[in-house]
Amino acid sequence: MKILLIVLLVVVALLVLNIVRIVMQNTTVPTLGHDNGQLKPLSKKPNAVSTQAADEERRVRTWPFKADLASTRAAILEAVKAYGGAEVVTEADDYIYVVFTTAKMHYHDDVEFYLDNEAQQVHFRSASRAGYSDLGLNRQRYEKLTELYGQ
C-alpha cells in the first residue's frame, strides 16, 4: 500500500510539473519581428508554419499584395478580425503581430505578417507557444486566413 501511495504521489507531481511548464510556455511572449525581411526561424517543434520555413513540410505560400501597401494591411486586419479570437499587438507599415487564443484551452499562438512592399508579397509565420504539436492548427489557421484575405 505504501509503494502504491508513493507511485501515485510521483505521478501527481509529474502532472503538476507538466501543467506548470505548459502555463509558463503559454504566458512567455517570444522575441519576434523581422530583420531585413526575414521573420524569426521556426523552432524544431512541429507546431508552426511559415512562408520562410526551411522545412518544406512547414512552409506555406506567400500572399500577393492587394492594390497597395495600405489596402494589403487593411485586408490582413479584416481577415484577422473575421477569423476571431485575436488581439493585434503590433501594427506597423510593413509588419503586423497578432496573438490568437484558442477557444477551449486558451493557448496563445503568435502570428506575424511581414508586408514586403518591394516583392509585393505578404510573408506569414504562425507558431504555438505551448506544447510540442499543434495537431495542424497553425496550418488550418493559415488556410482560413488565406481564404478570408482572398475575399
Rank of each mutant, 00 (worst) to 15 (best):
N36L: 07
G33N: 13
K144E: 04
V122H: 01
A70F: 11
I96G: 05
G37F: 05
N47V: 00
S43P: 05
A75K: 09
A74G: 09
D68F: 12
Y114M: 04
H108D: 13
L77M: 09
K40N: 11
Q140W: 08
P41L: 02
S50M: 02
R141H: 01
L8T: 10
V29N: 13
V111C: 06
A119R: 15
R125A: 00
R129E: 07
V23R: 15
G33Q: 14
S128W: 01
K104E: 09
F124K: 08
V23E: 14
Y97C: 07
A86L: 04
D109F: 04
K104Y: 09
N117S: 14
G131V: 01
A67E: 10
R129F: 06
A92W: 06
K2Y: 10
V49Q: 09
T27V: 03
L148D: 07
D55Y: 06
K45R: 15
Y83C: 03
K45L: 15
A70I: 11
V11K: 14
G131Q: 02
A127W: 10
R61G: 01
Y132K: 03
T101G: 02
Q140C: 01
K104H: 02
M1R: 13
S126V: 06
K44Y: 11
I6H: 08
K45H: 14
T28K: 10
T62Y: 01
V16M: 15
R58K: 12
L14G: 15
V122M: 04
R21K: 13
N18W: 15
N36Q: 14
G131D: 05
G85P: 05
L5K: 14
V12L: 15
E78N: 14
D68K: 07
Y149F: 06
T31W: 05
L15K: 11
F65N: 03
Q151I: 07
K104M: 10
T101D: 08
R139Q: 05
A82H: 04
T146W: 02
L4A: 12
L15S: 15
I22S: 03
L135I: 05
R139V: 04
N26R: 04
K104G: 00
T62A: 10
T72A: 07
Q151C: 00
M105C: 06
R125Y: 03
A48R: 08
V111H: 03
Q151L: 01
I22D: 09
L77Q: 14
A54K: 14
Y97V: 03
R58G: 04
V20H: 08
R141N: 09
L69I: 10
G37Q: 02
H108A: 00
D35N: 11
A82D: 12
K66N: 01
M1W: 08
L9D: 14
A92P: 07
S133D: 14
S126H: 03
E78M: 12
L137Y: 10
D94M: 01
R139N: 06
V49E: 09
Y97Q: 10
Q151W: 05
Q120L: 03
Y83E: 13
T101R: 06
N18I: 07
F124P: 06
R141G: 00
Y149W: 07
V122L: 00
H34C: 05
